[in-house]
């Protein structure tokens, strides 16, 4: 890493703009984190309305298949360098929605995630802790999920298509039941 990159990474880590797009119930932890009580602006993190100007994408909890489609659009619109934070159990292994027909299990099958936070939901301290960790990783140049996405684009796309572009029922017997309905 050249000195120039080091310098750039130093500043990148100190002004991460967060896409203001909340998916699951974890969004409720963000207002205290953003506002004066925990005040994440101390770390240069501010909410940003459009994906093209944002650096971090928070996946705050469960993602239904329908939301996942929008999240993938959004992620692809963001310009590199970009980072993804997975909040809570649901993004890790399905969480309480582990057997749901509409909610995905592992987030990192569909987009690369840089940092996972345990909890259901993580408290603001845990979120700030994760931001601190992400900042260090960015400054060291370790968080490179976006490169992973480009490198393994086919794998990610195949996984996404598996849930978005089905052409036949998942459960075989289902077809005849639907017909009779």
């Amino acid at each position: 890493m050249s000195e120039w990159d080091e310098l750039v990474n130093y500043f990148r880590g100190r002004s991460m703009w967060m896409l203001h797009y909340c998916t699951g119930c974890g969004a409720i932890e963000l207002p205290p984190t953003m506002t004066s009580r925990w005040d994440m602006e101390r770390f240069g993190i501010i909410p940003m309305a459009t994906p093209r100007q944002a650096d971090i994408l928070l996946i705050t909890g469960y993602l239904s298949i329908k939301t996942l489609k929008r999240v993938v659009y959004t992620y692809e619109q963001m310009s590199a360098p970009k980072w993804v934070l997975g909040f809570g159990s649901c993004t890790i292994n399905g969480g309480i929605y582990w057997d749901s027909y509409g909610v995905i299990q592992n987030l990192d099958k569909y987009i690369p995630v840089d940092l996972y936070i345990a909890g259901c939901m993580p408290r603001p301290e845990a979120i700030l802790d994760a931001f601190g960790k992400l900042k260090k990783m960015v400054q060291k140049g370790e968080a490179k999920g976006y490169e992973k996405y480009i490198k393994n684009y086919d794998w990610y796309k195949a996984n996404q298509d598996r849930v978005f572009r089905r052409t036949e029922p998942v459960l075989r017997k289902a077809e005849e039941v639907t017909k009779s309905a």
């Binding site: 239904s64 298949i65 329908k66 489609k69 399905g94 582990w98 057997d99 749901s100 027909y101 509409g102 995905i104 299990q105 592992n106 598996r162 849930v163 978005f164 572009r165 089905r166 052409t167 036949e168 029922p169 998942v170 459960l171 289902a174 077809e175 039941v177 639907t178 309905a181």
Partner: peptide
């Protein structure tokens, strides 16, 4: 309305096995 590209049994019917479905689709 809500579901994305749904081809199976309507999901809130009692004979729809949601665990079997998610095991098949999400591969676990």
């Amino acid at each position: 309305f809500f579901l994305e590209n749904w081809l199976d049994t309507p999901p809130l019917r009692k004979d729809f096995d949601t665990l079997a479905y998610s095991q098949e689709l999400f591969e676990f």
